[in-house]
């Protein structure tokens, strides 16, 4: 039986860097690219990532080396590995932030993974990185980060769902939207509805990207 961890393994860094270099040379005008970094799992030890202490630094160096820098970087969760020790959790998050400071691209957005935030419903995460759901606009595209990990059962909760509905409502029908979530299995965006474990709610008639 193939392990789920194996299914979650990401592309190799070398392959991703080659793709990054290729795409960084494309386009002009309104065209842009951003980098998403996730699952560095700082503090993890052993297979399948025996180099967890170094992978983020290496990925950051690779991004810094690209001739054209990304417009922004999204840290999409699980940048630290979970621990029940609060002191160790703080330490890992501080170490992560130090590495992130070394990136040339200073426009950085953070969102939690369950390893970062499921412990104590995201309290310690928020002390270091602030709010766990938010939105922003960039060159005509609306981006929203959804927190579906601070609840260990992966519910986004009524309050966040209400916020998201209010956030999307003013957008035009042909708006382009990018949603960031850490857990893939909970949030499903459809053309006319948003389905979560909390139920299905009507959304503005917007096209979506996921």
């Amino acid at each position: 039986m193939r392990s789920r961890r194996a299914d979650l393994e990401k592309d190799t860094l070398a392959g991703a860097c080659a793709e990054l270099q290729r795409k960084s040379g494309l386009g002009g005008g309104d065209e842009f690219f951003f980098v998403q970094l996730s699952d560095s799992h700082r503090g993890f030890q052993g297979p399948p990532n025996p180099e967890a202490a170094n992978t983020l630094r290496e990925a950051g160096a690779a991004v810094n080396a690209v001739s054209r820098q990304p417009d922004f970087i999204v840290f999409a969760g699980d940048f630290t590995h979970t621990t029940d020790d609060e002191g160790v959790r703080h330490k890992r998050m501080l170490e992560f932030k130090e590495v992130a400071k070394g990136l040339n691209t200073k426009a950085q957005y953070y969102m939690p993974g369950e390893h970062d935030a499921a412990f104590k419903q995201g309290k310690i995460y928020q002390e270091h990185f602030g709010q766990t759901h938010y939105s922003f606009n960039h060159k005509g595209i609306h981006f929203a980060a959804i927190d579906n990990v601070s609840d260990p059962g992966a519910s986004i909760g009524d309050a966040q769902l209400d916020w998201l509905m209010r956030d999307l409502k003013p957008l035009k029908p042909d708006a382009s939207i990018v949603i960031f979530t850490e857990s893939r299995q909970v949030l499903t965006l459809r053309e006319d509805s948003l389905e979560t474990r909390a139920g299905v709610a009507a959304t503005p008639a917007v096209s979506t990207a996921y």
């Binding site: 065209e31 980098v35 699952d39």
Partner: peptide, 11 residues
């Protein structure tokens, strides 16, 4: 709209 390029490194 400009193109959007995302690179992933990573009961």
């Amino acid at each position: 709209m400009g193109s959007l390029l995302a690179v992933l490194l990573a009961a």
